[in-house]
Amino acid sequence: MKGARHTPLNISAAALTLSLSALLLTTPAHTAEPKPSDNGAGSNQQGGGSDDTGIYAAAQVQYSGAVAKNGGIGNVSSADVNWTPPACWYAPYLGAKDFKKKMSSDIEKWQNDPAITGTADSAIGEVQRHYKDDYGWADTPGYKDYNVDKDGEGMFWAGVENPNEPNYAARTSCSDLPFWVENGETPPPQYEEAITPEMLAALAYQHMELPGTKVTLAPQAITKVNLPTWAWLDKAVFDEVQATAAINAPGFNITATTTAKPKSLTLSPGTADATTIPADGGCPIVNGKIGEPYAKGKAKQTPPCGIVYRRSSGGETFPLKAALTWEISWTGTGQAGAVGLPDGTIEAVQNITVEEIQSVNR
């Protein structure tokens, strides 16, 4: 049978929607609770588990390295506002025999559900024909007995939602019926959302947790008008941070590691009545460090990184914002070298009190 790939069944759109929604074998990108990360010091977040039939779901993503706690998104933000991780994807789900067991159980349950009647029941019957009786359409062939004669030679792939995607329509858009992929082969080209190392790298980016950005100041929380305030970051912040995302299923092993390296610090004094040093507020990494610690005898020197406030905070405080920019790249399965991703930023705000310098006339 030939026809459009997204309208395989000769029934109403409403019934097809019901059938497809029932057949979305989606699994959260991660369900197991990860071990806490420690400022990028490494933790493991394991995907895996089983559905209500007890069949292992291979489509889950495994995270390791510097990933956020409890499966949440990390604290790094992309410097490119137009860049986003994938909202959903297709990934290995079940082998042929397990898929037949799962589908047969579901179809029997739907057929015995009195709420499913008419064209919806026809939709379920045609989906059953698709996997059991070699009923296909357009560029998507049907299957004979769920491909059980090929068990171990491939897997059925299914749609997976990114639980951190706020747009429901985007998150649920990987709605095609599960399809077969031979071991070592790539999915058919029409499945543009099939998981790739680059997509895994973006997911690792999304879950990456980086160290905080609290700068050290001299003077500390209270400074003086027209007195240079020195700013620097602890050298420990400059350690390279990595997060890895992987899918490891029989016949399919895809991995990507995203790496973040500190690049520069940008200071925003919290008031227009201040001068940043350098003038653009950007303090680059020089000889492996950002800024220079203040030392006795440097009071009259200009710091390589700092701020000069031109008026007092009047008994209040100024919100000094420090934004650390990280250069991010990834490597992964089949990738010869590192590939760049948009820079990431981490921001922190410190409240600064600025006082007038008091003088005594004699």
Rank of each mutant, 00 (worst) to 15 (best):
I55C: 12
Y56F: 14
A57V: 14
A58T: 07
A59T: 00
Q60P: 02
Q60R: 12
Q62W: 13
Q62I: 05
Y63R: 04
S64G: 11
G65T: 07
A66V: 00
A66I: 02
V67E: 05
A68D: 05
K69Y: 12
G71S: 11
G72T: 13
I73C: 09
G74Y: 00
N75E: 03
N75L: 05
S78Y: 04
D80P: 07
D80T: 01
D80C: 08
V81C: 04
V81P: 08
N82T: 15
P85T: 12
P85S: 14
W89V: 08
W89D: 10
Y90R: 06
Y90F: 10
P92I: 02
Y93T: 09
Y93R: 15
L94P: 07
G95T: 15
A96Y: 05
A96M: 00
K100D: 02
K101N: 09
K102W: 09
S104R: 12
D106Q: 11
D106P: 01
E108C: 12
K109S: 14
Q111L: 13
N112H: 13
N112T: 15
N112M: 01
D113R: 10
P114T: 11
P114Y: 04
A115Y: 05
G118H: 11
T119D: 15
A120C: 05
A123N: 09
I124S: 01
E126T: 13
R129C: 09
R129E: 10
R129M: 07
H130W: 06
Y131M: 03
Y131T: 11
D134V: 01
G136Q: 06
G136E: 01
G136T: 03
D139Y: 13
P141G: 06
G142A: 02
G142S: 05
Y143F: 09
K144S: 01
K144W: 07
D145K: 14
D145R: 10
Y146S: 13
N147R: 10
N147L: 04
V148H: 06
V148F: 04
D151V: 11
G152F: 02
G154A: 03
M155E: 06
M155A: 14
F156V: 00
W157N: 12
W157Q: 12
A158R: 04
